Amino acid sequence: VGDQVLEIVPSNEEQIKNLLQLEAQEHLQLDFWKSPTTPGETAHVRVPFVNVQAVKVFLESQGIAYSIMIED
């Protein structure tokens, strides 16, 4: 199991704000291929294997929908 690319769908401005804060966490080494800008629009982010669980827990705790787009 390696890195994953998640497709994330924020449903409101609050969730977009939370994702932008997540993007700013440099220690997570997230690679946003497509940043969140509009509710209902997908964002794509590559998550290093060591941080996959932490990111998924965060998304679930914020009620942000996501799916695994690419499993490496």
Rank of each mutant, 00 (worst) to 15 (best):
V1D: 11
V1M: 10
G2L: 09
G2K: 06
D3N: 10
D3I: 11
D3H: 14
Q4N: 04
Q4G: 03
Q4K: 07
V5Y: 10
V5A: 04
V5R: 04
V5I: 12
L6Q: 01
L6G: 00
E7P: 00
E7N: 08
I8P: 01
I8C: 05
I8F: 05
V9N: 07
P10H: 01
P10S: 02
P10R: 01
P10N: 01
S11G: 07
S11W: 10
S11Q: 11
S11L: 12
N12M: 02
N12A: 02
N12T: 14
N12F: 02
E13F: 12
E14D: 09
E14T: 09
E14P: 03
E14W: 10
E14L: 10
Q15E: 05
Q15L: 01
I16E: 01
I16T: 04
K17T: 08
K17L: 12
L19Q: 00
L19Y: 01
L19W: 01
L19V: 05
L19A: 01
L20G: 05
Q21N: 11
Q21T: 10
Q21E: 12
L22D: 01
L22T: 02
E23W: 15
E23T: 12
E23K: 15
E26C: 14
E26D: 10
H27C: 08
H27L: 07
H27V: 08
L28Q: 03
L28C: 07
Q29M: 12
Q29T: 06
Q29F: 09
Q29D: 08
Q29G: 13
L30E: 01
L30Y: 02
L30T: 03
L30G: 02
L30M: 05
L30Q: 01
L30K: 01
D31F: 15
F32M: 04
F32V: 04
W33F: 14
K34N: 07
K34C: 08
K34R: 07
S35R: 15
S35Q: 13
S35E: 06
S35Y: 13
P36G: 03
P36I: 06
P36S: 05
P36T: 05
T37S: 11
T37A: 07
T37D: 05
T38R: 09
T38D: 06
P39F: 04
P39R: 03
P39D: 02
P39K: 04
G40H: 07
G40W: 07
G40K: 04
T42D: 02
T42L: 07
T42G: 05
H44N: 06
H44I: 15
H44W: 15
R46W: 08
R46G: 03
V47L: 03
V47N: 01
P48F: 04
P48Q: 05
P48H: 04
P48Y: 04
F49L: 10
F49D: 05
V50W: 11
V50G: 09
V50F: 10
N51S: 12
N51I: 06
N51P: 00
V52N: 04
Q53P: 10
V55Y: 03
V55K: 00
V55W: 02
K56S: 04
V57C: 12
F58H: 03
F58N: 01
L59E: 00
E60C: 05
E60S: 06
S61Q: 13
S61N: 11
S61C: 08
S61W: 06
Q62D: 02
Q62M: 14
G63F: 05
G63M: 05
I64M: 05
I64A: 01
I64E: 00
A65K: 14
Y66P: 00
Y66N: 01
S67D: 04
S67C: 09
I68R: 03
I68Y: 05
M69W: 08
M69H: 08
I70H: 11
I70C: 14
I70K: 10
I70W: 13
E71F: 10
E71A: 11
D72F: 15
D72A: 13
D72I: 15
D72P: 10
D72K: 10
